[in-house]
Design a protein around this nucleic acid. Structure first.
Lengths: 210, 210
DNA sequence: TCCGCAATTCAATGAATGTTGAATTCGAGG
DNA sequence: CCTCGAATTCAACATTCATTGAATTGCGGA
């Protein structure tokens, strides 16, 4: 939307267009680009997001993407594909507590994360499954590591099938809540969804799946 | 993959390139375009699919898309957005049989369709949720009509929430099986998935969801 | 048989996008 | 204080894509 006159804090107020050359210190354009990229990739997916849109959102020129990350591809790899959380670490944290409430803890944890800070990375991933080969692979690796360790630790059988079943429920919930935006799932509060979804996830983890 | 020399059945074998002008009768390019469009949209989503790729697959020139459908947009509307099946009709057919096996019939029916003839339309829809505004709306309308009528008929409460819960499980299963392709869900046979998923869907339809 | 019209291909156009190189400006070390 | 290098913007390029208009060819009715 707004893409010019974002220069109000510049030292020379008489020049409306931003000056060339090195900008005053203290502005980390690299970080700004990563954050803008996560937001724009989350909204539009990999090939829906343009380098110009990301740069505009970060308040810099589009050439900065190539300067700092080599290419749009490189920016996507740094901003989205390198997940900011470790699946094994997250899984270990969720093991504490009664095993029959595991599904509950999982649903609550994922919804809380996706609603909050790291959520755009997840949205960027599932929105880029089409359009970027590695997005699906990264998502799959994450769920595989996460659920394989978890299901193994509670001693259930048929680990690969249970893993994909759990993934299907979580990905589906993410798609409906954040991407396709079906009401009332989009605006439902977290605890309502925990009560509704957790027992189903629990069955995939420890129940009889035929 | 193959994109030229698909002209082996032409009347003049000495001309390698296809002649201009009207082609011999009996070739319904309009239908060929619709079928090719469903396949290519299913593989690549709306903006991943190029008009040239669709036309090549149909064996005609890209300009035919504009001639017959006005635009890429128009072709998408005819080939994907106008669903070839009626949700209410489908729902009515699934009502026959015991209510506690409803989830089973639903999972089996959807997997059978998606694996078979009309499956590319569904894949095209979910692959185009990013990139095409109306894709999500059409998908939502379908599930809403389908599940709202169904849940109403069996007398459960909280119809909108149950509808989105069911949609989340079915969309998630479709994403994992056809789009993201996590093993073993991609190659699992239908009855295995029915046994695994149907009880969860059944709970969303008639169970206690908190 | 002949003629108008529709179907088809071809070539070109304009817009959008990722990328690059030159020009410019600031920060820091000597 | 001066100079070198890094950061930044700007303009231009090459490519890809959907779309369009002209040219061409077969079908079907009179």
């Amino acid at each position: 939307m707004r893409h010019d006159e974002a220069v109000s804090t510049t030292e020379n107020p008489e020049t409306t267009a931003r000056r060339r050359g090195r900008r005053p210190a203290g502005q980390d354009t690299r970080t700004a680009l990563v954050e803008a990229a996560r937001a724009v990739f989350a909204e539009n997916g990999y090939d829906g997001a343009t380098v110009r849109a990301i740069a505009t959102r970060a308040g810099v020129d589009a050439a900065m993407v190539n300067h700092w990350f080599g290419s749009k591809e490189g920016l996507f790899a740094h901003a989205v594909l390198e997940l900011p959380f470790d699946p094994l670490e997250l899984q270990a944290a969720l093991r504490d507590g009664p095993a029959h409430e595991l599904g509950e803890r999982i649903v609550r944890t994922f919804l809380t994360r996706w609603d909050g800070a790291g959520g755009d990375v997840f949205q960027a991933l599932i929105r880029s499954i089409t359009g970027h080969e590695q997005a699906g692979r990264v998502l799959r690796d994450f769920f595989q590591r996460f659920f394989t360790a978890l299901i193994t630790s509670i001693g259930s059988d048929r680990i690969p099938l249970r893993m994909t079943l759990c993934a299907s429920q979580l990905v589906g919930m993410g798609m409906i809540r954040y991407v396709a935006k079906f009401e009332p799932m989009t605006t439902a509060d977290i605890e309502t969804l925990v009560r509704a979804v957790a027992p189903n996830l629990q069955r995939y983890l420890t129940g009889d799946i035929g």
